[in-house]
Amino acid sequence: MQTLSKFLSYKIKTIAIVDSSSSGPEVTLPYWDAEIAGFSTVHVPQELQTIPEIVAFIQEHAQAAICSHRLGSYQAPLFYGAELAASLYDAGIPTLLVTQYLEIDQHSSIRRWRDKLPVVLHLREFDFSTLRHYLDLCVSELQGHIPDSRIPYRVMVGVEHVEGVAGDQYVDVSIDYWDRYQRIRMPIEVFPAELRDQIEPGTWLFAMVNVGAQFAHELYFRDFTLAPEPQFDESLTYCVNVLDDINESENPFLWFEKQQVYAHQLEIEVFGASKDLYN
């Protein structure tokens, strides 16, 4: 785990490139853009087949990473790059996730780990002229400087539709506080295992969501708990920033450390003008 003092002066000299195999679904990452931008690059060896192995290699050889999403080959995928990028986030390593499949995978395999993916790019957006900016965004979030589009708020989420079969189910939800006219799709694995049997149309939940996001693919969801059906437009007004106390701390933890420390301490507040949600 990185220390705060190290991160305050964090410098990126070498970037690890985690690519799909030559027979894989993603086009080879243009690593030369990173070199044009002034960084050294190191390619993660294809023989490394597990997330812990790759994280350990990157910790030893680089200070940041750029990762394709659909790793491995068509026939033998390893795991999704989003999962690897989330593990690198937990290790305090700034990582860009780059994919040609953003429009498709944003609803499924990327959404599962979106809370730990500060920057997700379509391949066409990856360019030497913006690379340093995107890496700075990742470093800044790990330091605890969270942009408005990434700050989580406790809001109400309504289940609108469920489809698929066991092991491959998708849930469409509404977040009225964000946009009452739009629906967001996610895999059922985003929900805690103990709640999945209760996920059906008409179910209401509390969840932590970054409702400052501009686009649907930027939204993440976590810390779901069951909620009563809202009344008096509560779903349009219920929005609580339960992390204010640590976001404004004079001596903050790293952002990923905050999430671990405070995850079990999130409290739900009730607007005085609304009905008591617990009765």
Rank of each mutant, 00 (worst) to 15 (best):
P252I: 07
Q260L: 14
S9G: 13
A263Y: 14
I66T: 07
E47A: 08
L137D: 15
S87N: 09
E229N: 13
Y238N: 03
H145L: 12
G272R: 02
I93K: 00
L71D: 00
R132G: 13
E269R: 11
D148I: 06
I17P: 01
P25N: 10
R183P: 01
I36M: 15
Q63L: 01
P228D: 04
F7L: 12
L121D: 05
L135T: 00
R185T: 11
E229R: 14
S21P: 06
L84W: 05
V242K: 08
H264E: 15
A76V: 12
M156S: 04
I146Y: 00
H264Y: 11
L102G: 09
H161G: 09
V27P: 04
L48Y: 04
D105C: 10
E47K: 13
A166E: 15
S249N: 10
T99Q: 06
T50N: 08
T50D: 10
H61G: 04
V270T: 14
V165I: 09
I184M: 04
K13T: 11
A62H: 06
S235F: 03
R185V: 07
V55N: 07
S9Y: 13
R111D: 00
N247K: 06
D148N: 12
E83T: 12
E125I: 13
Y220D: 05
Q59L: 12
E267Y: 15
D90Y: 02
E103S: 15
E53Q: 04
R222Q: 13
Q265H: 13
T237E: 04
D127P: 06
T3W: 00
Q46C: 10
W32G: 15
L123N: 09
Y153M: 00
P230A: 13
S68M: 03
L131I: 06
R222V: 14
D136M: 13
F256A: 14
M186A: 04
Y31S: 08
Y220L: 02
C138S: 03
S108H: 09
I104A: 13
D136L: 14
Q169V: 15
L236K: 11
Q49T: 09
Q214S: 10
V240N: 04
A216Y: 03
Q214E: 15
N241G: 11
L131V: 09
H133N: 13
L88N: 05
R154C: 08
Q259C: 00
Q169A: 14
Q46D: 09
H61D: 09
G202P: 05
L236G: 04
Y262E: 01
